[in-house]
Structures are given as structure tokens and as C-alpha cells.
Nucleic acid binder design. Structure first.
Length: 464
DNA sequence: AAAAAAC
């Protein structure tokens, strides 16, 4: 094994001069909570970090003025070489919180020899998110010797194999294709010393955990492991700590499920039949060139609503996991460029995606967990911008009402009487928190997305 | 009676 230096952080003189009181005040003002032994002081300006000069230059070019709270505390922690759990709301700069320390980490290592695998591995739950992270890595790795590549399914293997065989310091991957590549010996994880789980609670849930276990088992145990998410259900903590040693924990705000405060959240209690007409009414009010993202719970629902919208003349496209990756890529690019300002999506688009100027998120269906609710609406209101989230809420979703109200109140939103009434109609607070980590709610009842004369069958496919 | 993630 190649030994690696674990502490890349030395406090700048200005950080060293901060008194404990200064630190406490700084953290209090920015809602930073820390746990762990020997927690380093936060950095207040970019110049207090020890990132390479060219990184600071890119930061300046991006127009960033000062580190976000998760960055100011996360950077020195990550640079210490210790494990880390970082929890901060959607749109608060988590990607750079782990990517820049990753660059420093790589630059401090002996160069890659031929046949060696990556030094940094970042795992993400969707292909689009992996690609987005890689774009960010390219932006900051460009002017150094740090190469990166993205390994994900649905795309041709050839170029990915070529990149891996040629050697890259940073690999950003979705689990399935990475395991595929490992089994085919196109790469190995023997040199990985910096492992990131983005959207960590999702990566540790039922669907992903076995794959994550398989991947982590191939990485040296003295690696540095970093978890990041906007949501952190209590149920994951025990599982998560199995893969961590003496971690720091940094939380921005509270550990309570918390939505981004700059998003106006509007819950509309409707019946199933009222959804589509209500959607059209909202689109008529909101359409002014900016982007609108509509979430549904099922792929079929996405197709149906998109088809109906297009028949009614709306420029809508749909993204979900049954579509070819080439179409997913195209739809997302059309949405990003504004050529198709309305996108319907399943939860494939719920986490992490950073599209500028999404003015409005509409939950056509209420999600199957409140964590997903927080992530979905977090596609708007990014980097301090304002956004609006409309959510259609039916009596079938009543079990979420109480905890949803908690989220609304915590984020300073008004609670409509209709929602309050629904909350009172349910017994003790039951449903909601915990997402995939507890048993799923029962009783969905019959649902058809578009009722009566509005139903549009999709050619050749059986439905309902 | 959900989605995602490899071929």
C-alpha cells in the first residue's frame, strides 16, 4: 500500500488568531453545529484556505464572494483528513465543499503510475447528478494535473474504459456501471483514499446499500470517507457509522427535516380530478420564459401528463428512468437551455440537479417521503435565489400532513386551514419521516392521473 | 400501487 498524508490543513494566521468566542459567534450566526473531537475553526474568506491559487481564481471567476456555511466549516474538516458527515440545505454549495479538498488531496499524493486506479471516488445516485459533479470537477481541475472522468450506465462503455485505462485521479460514478467496470478489471480501487457519498442517505437506502457495500469493501480501510446530504433521517445514522472512523459532523441549521427558507411553499389541497385543470391554471399564471419543473410519482404518470400537456399546446418534455440515456440527456439540455421550459420528472430529478432559473417546482403527486419533498422543492431557490413550490395534496396524502406542517412552520411558511384540517383528521403523527428506512405507508387507493374525458391513452401501452 | 442503479 502507498502511504498517504492525512492532514493537508494548516490554519492561516487570521484563522489562528480567532478566539474561541469568535468561533462560537461565527458558528452561531451562520447556524453551524459541529460534533467530533478536535474540530478545526471555520474559514471566513477564501484566502484562509490552502487551495491552489488557480482554484481561488476560478472561484473569483464564478463570482463567489465568500464561502457558504457548509464550505467554511466543511473545508477545514475535510482537509484534516478525517471522516465527515456534512448536512446542509439544498442549493448551499455542498459539491464544492468536497471537491476542492479532493483536489488538494490529489495534489499531495504521489503521481498515478500506469495501471493504477483513481485516488478520489465520488458516488452519486443518478447519472445526471454524476455528470453534473464531473462538470464541476473539470472546471476546477482544468489548470492542474488532476484528471477526472464520469462512469455511469446507459452510455457507451468504450470512452469510459479508455479514460480508466489511461488513468484518472478522480472518478465520479453511479454504482452499477462502476461495479461493472471493476468486475471487468478496467480499473481498481486500491489507490482510493478519499471516498465521497453524495446524497448519502439515498446511497445508503435499501436500493443502493448492497452495491455501496460491495464497492467500499474494495477500498482500503484507512481511507477518508465523506457523506453529504440535505436530509439525514435518524434511521441512517447507525448504518452510516459502520463505514466511518471518528467522524466530524457538521450540520447547517437543525437536523430536523428542513426546507430551504428562500422557497415559498404553497400546499394546495385538491382532489385527484382537480390536479390537471389546476396545473394548467398554474402554468398560465407562471409561464414567462423561466423554467418550471413538475414532479410525479410514476414514470407512467410522467408520460401521461406530458402527453396531455403537449396536446394542449404546452412545451413540455419528460425525464425518467425508462427513457434512453440519450433522450434523458437531450431533454435535460432542452430544459436547461430554455428551449423546452417545462419538464416533468420522476424522482430521478429530485436530488442534486442544479439548473439555473427554475422559477417554480410543482409537485403534481405528493412524494412518498418528506425527504423527497425537501429535495424536490430544492430544485428551485438555489444559491440564495427565490423560488416557489406548489404541491398538490389529496386526502390520500393525509398521513404526511402533520410532519409537512412542521416543515412549513420551520421554514416560516403559512399553513392553509385546509391542510391544518387534514392534519387534525389523522391520528398521532405517523407517516412521513424516514423515507425508505421505514415501512411504506399503506393504502394508496385508486389513482388515475387524469380523470374523465381528459384521459389520454398512450399508443400500444396498457395502462390503469 | 415508486424510483433509481449494469448488461
Amino acid at each position: 500500500m502507498i502511504p498517504f498524508e492525512k492532514n493537508f490543513y494548516s490554519e492561516s494566521p487570521s484563522v489562528r488568531m480567532m478566539t474561541e468566542q469568535d468561533v462560537a459567534l461565527y458558528r452561531r450566526k451562520r447556524n453551524i453545529t459541529v460534533e467530533g473531537r478536535d474540530v478545526p475553526k471555520p474559514v471566513r474568506v477564501f484566502q484562509e484556505t490552502n487551495f491552489p491559487d488557480y482554484c481561488l481564481q476560478v472561484i473569483a471567476e464564478c463570482g463567489f464572494v465568500e464561502p457558504t456555511p457548509i464550505q467554511s466549516q466543511g473545508w477545514p474538516m475535510a482537509l484534516k483528513g478525517r471522516d465527515l458527515i456534512g448536512i446542509a440545505e439544498t442549493g448551499s454549495g455542498k459539491t464544492l465543499a468536497y471537491l476542492l479538498p479532493a483536489l488538494v488531496h490529489v495534489l499531495a499524493q504521489p503521481p498515478l503510475m500506469s495501471g493504477e486506479g483513481p485516488i478520489v471516488l465520488v458516488l452519486a445516485p443518478t447519472r445526471e447528478l454524476a455528470v453534473q459533479i464531473q462538470e464541476e470537477a473539470v472546471k476546477f481541475g482544468l489548470r492542474s494535473r488532476v484528471r477526472s472522468t464520469c462512469i455511469y450506465g446507459g452510455a457507451p462503455k468504450g470512452p469510459q474504459i479508455r479514460d480508466l485505462r489511461r488513468g484518472v485521479e478522480i472518478v465520479i460514478a453511479t454504482p452499477g456501471r462502476l461495479i461493472d467496470m471493476l468486475e471487468a478489471c478496467h480499473t481498481n480501487l486500491r489507490r482510493v483514499t478519499y471516498l465521497v457519498l453524495d446524497e448519502a442517505d439515498r446511497m445508503l437506502d435499501m436500493g443502493f446499500e448492497p452495491q455501496i457495500r460491495k464497492i467500499i469493501s474494495q477500498i482500503r480501510p484507512d481511507r477518508q470517507t465523506l457523506y453529504w446530504s440535505a436530509t439525514w433521517p435518524r434511521e441512517v445514522e447507525t448504518l452510516a457509522r459502520q463505514f466511518l472512523h471518528n467522524p466530524y459532523k457538521v450540520i447547517i441549521g437543525s437536523l430536523e427535516l428542513k426546507a430551504n427558507q428562500s422557497i415559498m411553499q404553497i400546499i394546495e389541497v385538491v382532489s385527484e380530478n382537480e390536479k390537471y385543470p389546476r396545473l394548467v391554471k398554474l402554468l398560465n399564471e407562471m409561464m414567462d420564459g423561466s423554467r418550471i419543473l413538475i414532479f410525479l410519482d410514476t414514470k407512467k404518470g410522467c408520460d401521461q401528463v406530458t402527453r396531455q400537456l403537449r396536446m394542449d399546446g404546452w412545451p413540455a418534455l419528460s425525464i425518467h428512468g425508462d427513457k434512453a440515456q440519450s433522450e434523458r440527456d437531450w431533454v435535460l439540455s432542452q430544459f436547461k437551455s430554455g428551449s423546452s421550459p417545462i419538464m416533468t420528472a420522476t424522482d430521478v430529478a429530485a436530488r442534486g440537479l442544479d439548473v439555473k432559473d427554475i422559477k417554480c417546482v410543482i409537485n403534481y403527486d405528493f412524494p412518498t417521503s418528506l425527504e423527497d419533498y425537501v429535495h424536490r422543492i430544492g430544485r428551485t431557490g438555489r444559491a440564495g435565489a427565490k423560488g416557489t413550490a406548489f404541491t398538490f395534496f389529496t386526502h390520500l396524502n393525509a398521513k404526511y400532513a402533520r410532519n409537512l406542517i412542521k416543515i412549513l412552520q420551520e421554514a416560516g411558511q403559512t399553513v392553509s386551514p385546509a391542510l391544518a384540517t387534514l392534519a387534525r383528521s389523522t391520528g398521532a403523527a405517523s407517516g412521513g419521516f424516514g423515507g425508505n428506512f421505514r415501512s411504506r405507508g399503506r393504502g394508496y387507493g385508486n389513482r388515475s392521473l387524469i380523470s374523465g374525458s381528459n384521459t389520454i391513452p398512450i399508443g400500444g401501452r396498457k395502462q390503469w
